[in-house]
Every structure is written in C-alpha cells, then in structure tokens.
C-alpha cells in the first residue's frame, strides 16, 4: 500500500493511461479489424441523404467492385482514434486544441457506443456500460484543465463508474438478457456448470450495483472503488484469459488483447477514485484533520491538507 497520498501527477498519469489504452484498443479494432458502423449506414435514410447531395448509391456504398465513400471514410475513422491515443499522451495544461480534440474523442466513442447499443437491439445497458470508455477522454481533459481533485473531475469519474457498473450489473443480473459472452467467459475460466455460472453472475451483478451505490457513500466509497478497480481489471482480462491459446496464431493475441486494453477505464477510473480517496493510516489522524483545500486545482472536495502539502503532523 501507499505510504503517502498519491500526487496529482500520478493520478493524472493513471487517467492518461486509461484514455490511451482505451483509444489504442479501439484503434486496433478500427484499423486491424472492423469498425462497427455498418448498422448506422445501411438504411433508406442514408441513401436519401446521399442522393440529395447528388451522389449515387453505388458511389456512396460502393459498386461491389470498388469501395464507396462510406467504406473509405469509415476505415479512416481509425486514424482519428490513433490521433486521440497519441493526444492522450501528449495533452498538457493549456493545450486547448489537444483538449478539444480529446473531447471530440469522447464524441467518437459516444457514436461507437451508440452503434453497439443499436446492434444490441437498443438495450440501454449496452450504451451505459460504455460510459467509462466514453467519459475517460473528458475526464483526462478535466483533470488537466481544472484539476484532478476538482469536484467536476471527480463527479465525472463517479458517473463513469456508475454507468459502466450499472450497465454490467443489469446484464449480469439478467434485467436485460445476459450477453452470451458473460456466461462463456465465466464457464471457460472458472470451469463452472450453467447453474453455478448463473449464480456467480447474479452475485457479480448485485455487487456491481453495490458499487454504484457504495461509491456515493463516503464511508464505503474507497472500498467500493477498490472492488470496482479489481473487478474491472478481472473482467477486462477475462477476454484474453478465456480466449487466448497456445495453439492459435499469435496465441490469439490479435483477437483478444485489444479487448482488454479498450476496457482499461473499467479498472483505471475506479482505481483513480480509490487513490484519490486513499488516506494513509497515521497516528493521531482522525476525521477532523480534513479540511477544504483552497487551492490551485480549485477543488472544493475535502482532502487531507497535510498530505496535500507533503507533510505529516
């Protein structure tokens, strides 16, 4: 465990890492595999707009012999993801253009979450569970712009965690049909039979909702965030653990590793909250030690001033 409070710099680094890994994972999906936008584009309305611009359907979606504009540009979206991944590493305070681009990255991820939502028969949890991913670029921008301990930054992180875990929990509990992958990964990793798998997922789903509530309750928010970080890590790595095999080409890494990476916010956002709220045990310290930090980051959240100053009393 940490001996002292983590610095603002390390907290930003954590969020930066989450945003970078998320964009990197999606970049791989876009450039190496397939972007999931087909469900948005193959519609009468799409054609209507194309024809309004004087573009024939064949030019728009391709002739069959050659790609159309849509296919070319959809494939280029991956480069925007790559740019966002790089910006996640380079963005600094005052770099407003880079920040604006990252906010745009949140927009890109929102569109992506929307396509997933449509592909899942418009099930709301599918959209919500991408909350952590959609919000992490915004979180990074806020952490840099207004401070990693600012109420808005922390509030955004809490919303991201709640959305992700509420979405997962809704599926795991079967409020919406549990995705087949949940069963499959659990059964493969834990080697459980169906009934046990169901029970396990129900418990996990309940805990997901406890996280959503617990993260709002000061007394248990650290424990909730720690559990969320660990569970986020485990569920992210469940993909490669369940799917990779020595018998596959590249051990199946090109299929599964990015699935874990793009879910990095599921672990790193609650980890950020846990570290933010972490208080080292010290002799003589008690709740009254907390005060409101005046400060450079303009945060109004109660923190330990001693730690903030790098001192102990």
């Amino acid at each position: 465990m940490f001996l002292s409070m983590p610095s603002d710099r390390s907290l930003v680094l954590l969020i930066r890492l989450g945003a970078f890994l998320c964009f990197a994972g999606w970049t791989w999906q876009h450039l190496y595999w397939e972007a999931p936008y087909g469900i948005l584009l193959w519609h009468d309305t799409t054609y209507a707009y194309a024809s309004r611009w004087g573009i024939s359907w064949e030019e728009f979606v391709g002739t069959g012999a050659a790609d159309g504009f849509v296919q070319k540009w959809v494939s280029r979206v991956g480069w925007l993801y790559l740019a966002c991944a790089i910006l996640s590493l380079t963005v600094r305070k005052g770099a407003w253009i880079q920040m604006a681009a990252l906010v745009g990255g949140s927009g890109l991820l929102s569109i992506l979450a929307y396509t997933k939502y449509l592909a899942a028969n418009s099930q709301p949890p599918m959209f919500f569970e991408h909350g952590g991913q959609v919000l992490i670029p915004l979180l990074l921008v806020l952490a840099i712009a207004v401070g990693v301990r600012h109420r808005i930054t922390v509030g955004t992180a809490i919303v991201a965690v709640i959305l992700t875990f509420a979405g997962h929990g809704s599926y795991a509990l079967g409020i919406w049909p549990t995705p087949a992958g949940f069963h499959a990964m659990t059964a493969v990793i834990l080697k459980t039979e169906y009934q046990t798998t169901r029970a396990f997922l129900h418990v996990a789903g309940l805990l997901d909702f406890f996280v959503c509530l617990g993260i709002l309750v000061p007394a248990i928010r650290r424990q909730s965030a720690l559990y969320a970080a660990i569970w986020g890590l485990l569920t992210s790595f469940a993909r490669p653990v369940a799917g990779m095999s020595l018998g596959l080409r590249f051990w199946g890494a090109d299929h599964f590793i990015h699935e874990a990476l793009l879910r990095a916010p599921h672990c790193l956002v609650p980890l950020y909250l846990f570290l933010l709220w972490y208080r080292p045990r010290q002799a003589g310290s008690h709740e009254s030690d907390f005060a409101t930090m005046p400060s450079a980051d303009s945060t109004l959240l109660p923190i330990n001033p001693a730690s903030a100053n790098g001192q102990t009393r």
């Binding site: 584009l41 309305t45 309004r52 573009i55 728009f60 504009f69 959809v74």
Partner: peptide, 9 residues
C-alpha cells in the same frame, strides 16, 4: 460526402 455521412448517421 463526409458531411453527408455524419448527418446521415
């Protein structure tokens, strides 16, 4: 075309 695609989306 890009504008069209975005709007269509």
């Amino acid at each position: 075309t890009l504008s069209c695609a975005a709007f269509a989306i």
